[in-house]
Computed example of a mutant assay.
Amino acid sequence: MAPQVFNLPGWQGSGPEHWQSRWELLHGYSRVEQHDWMRPLRGDWTARLEEVVLASRAPVMLAAHSLGCILVSWWAAHSRHTDRVVGALLVAPPDVEREDNRQVLHGWAPIQRQPLPFKSVVVASSDDSFCSLDRASHFAAGWGASLYHLGAKGHINADSGLGDWDEGHALLLDLKHAKC
């Protein structure tokens, strides 16, 4: 059975020009809708991800952006259902332990750093205002994920001008065939 891909947007969601929204239109992927995009609560977001994973009849792949990446690491550290996930694309994880980010995203620190029990790739930019490339590399190492350096693409969102972001989609598809 083919995996079902779920998009996990970050804080404030993903607008119509974001690669996640474009993938939903192009590839039929589903968005994990959260109760409140502006005031994200880690417990609520984690419970929602658990519901979605359990409701899926197919294996699951996760395409996370920003705070969605931190959500995946937290969920994986606490769920008993991680075996349902085939892989995760973790794009532009924010450093929620950095003081300026911590002020905006209350309750998301500390970041879980244990290895994820499924294949994963962290995609990072050298000029992301929410996380340095060094910290993204540190997160990837803790999660047991490979690191893909995209270059200077900001927060790897709609402002990055990626369009349909075929390069990212190829990384996601590669996870389908990889073994943990």
Rank of each mutant, 00 (worst) to 15 (best):
G43E: 15
E99D: 14
H177F: 10
P93E: 13
N157H: 11
V52P: 00
S129T: 15
P59V: 10
G13F: 03
G87D: 07
R31V: 03
Q114F: 07
G13R: 08
P3K: 15
G10C: 07
L150N: 10
A158M: 07
Q4W: 08
I111Y: 11
G43S: 14
W143L: 07
F139C: 11
A77G: 07
D95V: 02
V60N: 02
C131W: 06
V122P: 02
P115Y: 12
A145K: 04
V60L: 03
A170D: 12
L171S: 03
V104M: 12
M1K: 15
S56A: 12
G10R: 13
L171Y: 02
R80N: 15
G28S: 06
D164H: 06
A88I: 02
D83T: 11
G68E: 05
L54M: 09
A178I: 01
G163H: 09
A136L: 08
A92V: 00
A88Q: 07
A2W: 09
W45L: 06
A170M: 08
E97H: 06
Y29G: 07
F118S: 07
V52N: 03
V96P: 00
R135E: 13
S132W: 05
C131N: 13
L67F: 00
V32N: 10
L175R: 06
P9Q: 14
L41F: 10
A77L: 03
H27G: 04
S21C: 03
S125K: 12
F130K: 15
W19I: 04
D174C: 08
L67I: 00
D159L: 10
A152H: 09
H138W: 12
L8H: 05
M38N: 15
S66D: 01
L162S: 09
R102D: 06
S66I: 00
L71A: 00
G168L: 05
G87W: 01
S73T: 02
R48A: 04
C180Y: 13
G15I: 10
L150W: 10
P94T: 13
W74M: 11
R42Q: 11
L147F: 04
G68H: 00
I70T: 06
L175V: 00
G13D: 08
K176M: 11
W37E: 12
L147C: 04
V121L: 12
H169E: 13
M1N: 14
W19P: 02
L147H: 08
A158I: 08
V123I: 12
S21F: 05
H169I: 06
G15W: 08
G28E: 10
Q20T: 01
E99W: 12
D44P: 03
G107Q: 11
I111H: 11
C69E: 04
E99H: 11
H155E: 12
H35D: 15
V121K: 11
G168R: 05
L8A: 10
Q12T: 10
R98M: 05
V85Q: 09
S66R: 02
W19T: 03
A141D: 14
R84C: 00
P16G: 09
F6S: 09
H35P: 03
A140M: 08
H27T: 02
I70F: 01
G161H: 11
N7R: 09
Y148R: 15
D83W: 13
L71F: 02
R42L: 10
V86R: 15
R31S: 06
S160N: 14
S73G: 01
S129L: 15
Q20E: 02
